Amino acid sequence: MEVRTIKVFTTVDNINLHTQVVDMSMTYGQQFGPTYLDGADVTKIKPHNSHEGKTFYVLPNDDTLRVEAFEYYHTTDPSFLGRYMSALNHTKKWKYPQVNGLTSIKWADNNCYLATALLTLQQIELKFNPPALQDAYYRARAGEAANFCALILAYCNKTVGELGDVRETMSYLFQHANLDSCKRVLNVVCKTCGQQQTTLKGVEAVMYMGTLSYEQFKKGVQIPCTCGKQATKYLVQQESPFVMMSAPPAQYELKHGTFTCASEYTGNYQCGHYKHITSKETLYCIDGALLTKSSEYKGPITDVFYKENSYTTTIK
């Protein structure tokens, strides 16, 4: 009895394709271990004539594949690729409408935090270190965002349907971005203890939790000093293409032309909904596939993004 075979390709990165001759009487799992086709788990399936010449994702289970996976995804987590594939199996079914010149995501599976993050990423200057993220990001900007969303979920250790947080998501993504040249110098002034300067680099240099107003941050924000008295913390120097200011959701007025974009969060910790506000020729609110415009805006804002380049204080 002759062994019926077909020729397929296996890959971990969709760049390096490895030619395989597979036995049609055995499952993919018996031949390769966990195997995925377009995100779908085909591990328990036997090869079919229609699979001839198709590319299958496999887990990096030998040295060659491990090197290829690390170079593309910059992670050695053995569960990463499987999590990416199972997320992709959902995100490829989502709709990605162009809204006001940006790629958004039609609401499904509690994905409003991903839509808000995706919209924000198209408006701030950011370059990702893992080629996987950078490639998928370019495709997302062009309207094909399924891979990018699935990668975000995998890097953030999230599953489809789980509630997510924009600030946490951005923080994970910033860790995989090139923020080497970003720098922030802060000064804390206390009447009792004097003053202390701190220099922050990388992710810490672009994120701040405690106030939404970048102007206020430049002037000074009140913080408790270690001595128990009130101290003032203010920005001395900022070198970065953008800054992200966050605070627990509270009524906040966004003035046209003073910011790049913002995240609105309605609801409580267990259950809520994100919308995205962007400042173009007027203010726009993007909620999944829905767009509304207004000249002014007041609502429960939790993150505001500002364009920056270089700032030095005039406070002496």
Results as ranks from 00 to 15, higher is better:
Y36K: 05
D23C: 13
S171W: 15
E71M: 09
C112T: 02
T27L: 09
H276I: 02
S181H: 14
V236W: 08
A205P: 03
D109L: 05
K218T: 06
T120K: 02
L254I: 01
L290M: 15
Q134L: 07
N16S: 08
F128I: 02
Q216R: 10
V221I: 10
Y138T: 14
E215N: 10
K92E: 08
Y265R: 00
L102D: 03
Q237I: 11
N129T: 09
Y84S: 03
H256S: 08
E68A: 08
E71F: 07
T5V: 12
A117P: 01
T10N: 13
T35R: 05
A262Q: 00
I223Y: 14
T120G: 04
A140P: 04
A177K: 03
T27K: 13
Y57A: 09
E308H: 06
E215Y: 06
L151P: 02
K298S: 12
T266G: 07
Q98S: 10
F305W: 14
N187R: 13
R167Q: 03
C261M: 01
Q222N: 12
G202V: 02
D109M: 10
L102S: 04
T64V: 11
K298N: 08
A150D: 02
K229L: 13
Y284G: 05
Y172W: 13
P241G: 07
I124M: 06
Y96I: 03
K298P: 04
N16T: 09
V243P: 00
F174K: 02
E168I: 13
G228K: 05
G194E: 04
L291F: 11
F148H: 03
R66G: 09
C190Y: 01
Q196S: 13
M207T: 12
A108P: 02
C261Q: 00
L118Q: 03
P248F: 13
Y172G: 10
L81I: 14
N49R: 12
N187F: 07
P47K: 05
N61C: 13
I315R: 14
D303W: 01
L126P: 08
V188H: 10
F242V: 01
F259G: 02
G29W: 10
F148G: 02
Y138D: 13
T258A: 10
T169H: 04
A205E: 04
T258N: 11
S295E: 15
L17D: 11
Q195A: 14
M26R: 11
T292M: 10
E68G: 07
T11R: 05
F9Q: 12
F217I: 13
S294Q: 14
V221C: 08
E204A: 13
L17F: 15
V99P: 04
L173M: 15
H51A: 08
Y155T: 02
Q251G: 06
V206K: 01
E239V: 14
Q175A: 14
L153D: 03
V188T: 12
W94L: 01
T19N: 14
A87Y: 01
S213K: 02
A115Y: 00
I315T: 08
T19I: 14
T312L: 13
P130H: 02
A150S: 05
M170C: 12
Y306R: 00
N309T: 09
S79D: 10
L290C: 15
Q195L: 13
H74R: 12
V185N: 02
A108M: 08
L254H: 01
A154I: 02
F32P: 03
T211V: 13
D63A: 09
I15T: 12
R66S: 11
T169P: 01
S246Y: 02
Y36V: 05
K293S: 13
K233W: 11
R167T: 04
P131E: 05
Y84P: 01
P97H: 07
L88M: 10
L118E: 02
L179Y: 02
C182P: 02
A177Q: 03
V188G: 04
L235I: 09
K95C: 08
Y274K: 00
R66L: 13
L151E: 01
F56G: 04
C149P: 02
T169L: 10
N14L: 07
F242P: 01
E2C: 15
N111L: 04
G202S: 06
K219R: 13
L290R: 09
T5H: 15
A205W: 01
V206W: 01
I286W: 04
S246D: 00
Q175N: 08
G257K: 06
E239W: 07
S104Y: 04
K106M: 07
Y155S: 02
K127R: 13
M24L: 13
P34F: 11
P130A: 10
G202D: 06
D180I: 07
I301Q: 01
T314K: 11
K95S: 14
I45F: 15
K7S: 12
E308F: 09
Q98G: 07
S246A: 00
G210T: 03
V236A: 09
S86W: 14
T55A: 14
D135L: 12
A132N: 04
M209G: 07
D135S: 12
Q237P: 01
M24I: 12
E71V: 09
E52W: 15
V166W: 03
L291D: 06
C112W: 03
D38Q: 14
D13C: 06
T192V: 09
K218R: 07
F56S: 04
A177R: 02
I45R: 13
Y72P: 06
A115F: 05
L173V: 15
K219M: 12
N110W: 01
H256P: 14
A154K: 00
Y214P: 03
F80D: 04
V58E: 05
Y214K: 01
T169K: 01
G29Y: 12
K183E: 07
K183A: 07
M24P: 14
T292P: 00
Y72R: 13
Y306W: 03
Q216T: 09
Q123E: 08
E2N: 15
Y137G: 04
G210K: 03
K92A: 09
V99I: 08
Q98T: 13
N49H: 13
T159Q: 15
P241Y: 03
Q216A: 12
N309R: 13
F217E: 02
G161H: 04
Y172F: 10
T282I: 09
C193T: 01
T35W: 06
A154N: 02
Y137P: 03
D135G: 09
K275I: 06
Q196C: 11
